[in-house]
C-alpha cells in the first residue's frame, strides 16, 4: 500500500478522534478539578494528574448546601412538566390533527407564531401573574408556564396527521367516540413520538434557567441550574466547590445518557425533524 493510500485510510480516524478529544476536554477538566486538592487547583501550569484525589469538595457541597434538595426539586419540576405537557398537548394535538372545527387553522397559526417567542418577552407580566396567584417559590409556579409551550402540540400533531384515516374509521364503525379513537387507536401507535417528546421536554425542564431563576427565590426551592448559580455567586473563587457542584449536577444526565443513548439521540432527532415536518 502506498503512503498516499495509507494516509487516506487513517486521516478520517485522525480527524474524528481529534475533534472528539478536543470536545471532551472541558468535561474531563471539570471532573478533574472537582477531585483536586485546593492547592493544586490553583497551580501554574495547570496539572492534569493531582498528587492525590480528594472528596473534600464533594463532601462540602453536600454538607454546606441543600444540594440533594435541589436535585429533588429538579426531579419534581421536570416530571410535572413532562407529564403535564404530554397530557394537554396530546389532547390539543389530536383535535388539531383529526377533528374539524371552525377557527382551528387560525388558532394553530397563532400558536405557531407564539412558539417562536422567548421567555424574556413575557417574563415581567408572568412574574406579576404568579405573584397574584401566590405561585412564586412553588413547583407549580415554575412548571405551569413550561407546560403551556406549544411545541408539543406541533410535534404530536405532525405525527397524528400521518396516521391513516382507515384506522380511525374502523374504530368509529366499532362504536368508538372521538375519545375512544384517541385512546385506543392514536395513543397506542404513538409511543415512539411520546417517548421522543418526553425526552425533549424533560431535558428542557431539567435545564431551564431564566424563568426558574426569576420564579424561585428561596435557596431550598431552587432547581439545579439556579442552585449552581447560587453556588457560583457565593464563592466567586472557590473553584473546587463550584466545579464539584457542576460535576455532580451533570452526573444524572451522564448516567441517563449512557444507558439510553440511542433513544435520547433518536428522540432529539425526531423532535427536531418532526417540527420541520
Amino acid at each position: 500500500m502506498s503512503w498516499g493510500k495509507r494516509l487516506k485510510r487513517i486521516l478520517p480516524y485522525f480527524v474524528m478522534y481529534g475533534v472528539a478529544f478536543l470536545w471532551v476536554i472541558p468535561i474531563l477538566w471539570m471532573a478533574d478539578t472537582a477531585f483536586k486538592p485546593e492547592s493544586e487547583i490553583f497551580q501554574i501550569p495547570p496539572k492534569w494528574i493531582p498528587s492525590h484525589f480528594t472528596l473534600d469538595n464533594v463532601r462540602r457541597l453536600f454538607a454546606e448546601w441543600p444540594f440533594l434538595r435541589w436535585l429533588l426539586n429538579s426531579l419534581i419540576v421536570s416530571t410535572m412538566v413532562t407529564f403535564g405537557s404530554l397530557i394537554v398537548s396530546t389532547l390539543a394535538a389530536f383535535s388539531f390533527a383529526r377533528l374539524n372545527w371552525r377557527g382551528r387553522d387560525v388558532l394553530f397559526l397563532i400558536l405557531l407564531v407564539f412558539m417562536l417567542l422567548p421567555w424574556q418577552v413575557n417574563v415581567i407580566p408572568l412574574f406579576f401573574t404568579m405573584t397574584k396567584f401566590g405561585f412564586l417559590n412553588t413547583y407549580q409556579g415554575v412548571a405551569l408556564p413550561m407546560m403551556a409551550m406549544p411545541i408539543g402540540v406541533f410535534l404530536l400533531r405532525q405525527f397524528f396527521i400521518n396516521i391513516p384515516k382507515d384506522l380511525e374509521d374502523a374504530a368509529r364503525i366499532d362504536g368508538c367516540s372521538s375519545f375512544g379513537v384517541l385512546m385506543r387507536v392514536i395513543v397506542p401507535i404513538s409511543r415512539p413520538v411520546f417517548a421522543a417528546f418526553g425526552v425533549y421536554m424533560f431535558n428542557f425542564a431539567w435545564n431551564e434557567f431564566f424563568w426558574s431563576m426569576i420564579c424561585l427565590r428561596k435557596a431550598e426551592m431552587v432547581t439545579l441550574p439556579v442552585g449552581l448559580k447560587l453556588l457560583q455567586g457565593a464563592f466567586e473563587i472557590d473553584y473546587g466547590l463550584i466545579l464539584a457542584g457542576a460535576f455532580v449536577a451533570s452526573l444524572p444526565s451522564l448516567a441517563v445518557f449512557l444507558i439510553l443513548r440511542r433513544q435520547i439521540i433518536r428522540g432529539f432527532t425526531l423532535a427536531g425533524s418532526g417540527m420541520k415536518g
Partner: peptide, 29 residues
C-alpha cells in the same frame, strides 16, 4: 463514541456550561 461525545454537552444545563468555561478561561489558572 465520537457522536456521543459531540452531542453530550447539549444535555448539560447552561450553568454547568458557564461554570466549565469560566474556569477554562480563568485569567490565571
Amino acid at each position: 463514541t465520537v457522536q456521543s461525545i459531540l452531542f453530550f454537552p447539549y444535555l448539560l444545563n447552561v450553568s454547568i456550561v458557564a461554570i466549565i468555561w469560566k474556569w477554562l478561561l480563568d485569567r490565571d489558572f
